[in-house]
Design a protein around this nucleic acid. Structure first.
Lengths: 220, 220
DNA sequence: ATATAATGTGTATTTCTTACACTATTAAAT
DNA sequence: ATTTAATAGTGTAAGAAATACACATTATAT
């Protein structure tokens, strides 16, 4: 009637035109030496969301990360020593902000590494299934959540935004149609700034107006 | 590092043109005499889904009920005696099938009663929040899940179907536009049967072709 | 000056969404 | 037999959104 209680995080970022997930190499049985989602036990007097924030801070060095609960996984056979219930969360970070952090190690985790979502290794426990669910959730929410903008820097080009959409939806989009749609969203701000450091025509930068976004979706 | 583990069910049905939820009157502290979602502890060696099925059978007398996990609720302060993690599920039943069951009672539950969703009593714990979430989930999924058909008898009229949509979406729909859309779904079967026992023109009956439905949604 | 690599733009077609009102059918009441 | 009451069932036009599709523009590097 009691169960162990952990949280696991599917931490996404966007880099080199691809969605990536941060995985940890386990240094503990079961599944020693396997790759797994970062996660850990929730403390007795700790709120679940605080535990997620704690893990995210430990893994990425960042606070106030976008997070969204996916589901609870509680299979009796998930762990050989009896039920360990895990609540899976999805988190989104900007690669720029985490790239230069020193990956922490610990007794139970040998290293952290970003994997492209189409080059994932074999995974411990039911973590493959959790990732599958997170990808579906991300796909469904792409047009009515802030997800794409959580994955991009605050100033981004429309091409970058399109690439994020394409990575999440896992299909190519038409450039002109995409821009037409984007223009009608009403919560993107065209800046008077341009991309720098590229050896070709610099693209205009845009920013995301979260207030306007929230206003739109609160009316429905 | 361990927690109590329960499941709670938001059991919906459709009756008298309204969505209804089955609630239990508690006979135990805390929240003695309050109304609450039906739920109970998950046994040590019992799969979570089996526990849900067990509760649903107990409350409705039915097996093989549609169920869908909503989310985990794990607030430290949910229960005065310490964390009780609950995984909330949404279930959908046909009122006809449960109407004549004898509502069970037990030491911890005084009675069961169906409440219309806009006449809910005060609720124990965070159950109001759980119901809120279930309503939003139901709304989002109405067009791409089998939800409307789980709430209706196997043979139903288009007016009944429209009423279910209206109850879920909480708004009136135009009859002609609704029927036009429904006609294009491709997974409804027009039967050569008519409503009986009404004192006005009898409406044609339709049935839901789950196979066709699944085929359509597996291609996306 | 030229080559390169990506940016940025318009139109025609089709599909979907919305708004809107009357006739048809059945049972019950007279 | 006729009338009444209640719901079933039906089409069209206008507007909005989605789709398919190709080329001139601009900044940098050589």
């Amino acid at each position: 009637m009691q169960t162990h209680f952990t949280i696991d995080c599917v931490i996404f970022s966007f880099d080199e035109g691809q969605l990536k997930i941060l995985l940890a190499e386990r240094n503990e049985y079961p599944y020693k030496d396997w790759w797994a989602l970062p996660g850990y036990f929730v403390n007795k007097y700790e709120e679940m969301e605080d535990a997620v924030a704690r893990i995210l801070l430990e893994m990425t060095g960042l606070k106030d990360i976008y997070m969204d609960q996916l589901a609870a996984f509680a299979g009796v056979k998930r762990h050989p020593e009896g039920r360990i219930l895990t609540v899976a969360y999805m988190a989104l970070v900007q690669m720029e902000e985490v790239k230069n952090k020193i990956a922490p190690t610990s007794s139970y985790m040998r290293q952290l590494k970003w994997f492209s979502i189409d080059e994932l290794p074999d995974l411990a426990f039911d973590h493959r299934e959790i990732i599958q669910l997170s990808l579906e959730r991300l796909k469904k929410s792409v047009t009515y959540s802030t997800a794409p903008y959580e994955l991009l820097p605050t100033k981004f080009t429309l091409t970058q935004l399109q690439q994020v959409y394409e990575a999440i939806l896992n299909k190519k989009l038409d450039k002109r149609n995409f821009r037409k749609k984007i223009n009608n969203l009403g919560y993107l701000k065209e800046l008077n700034e341009f991309q720098k450091g590229v050896s070709y025509r610099a693209a205009k930068l845009y920013s995301f107006d979260k207030k306007k976004f929230l206003k739109q979706f609160s009316q429905d």
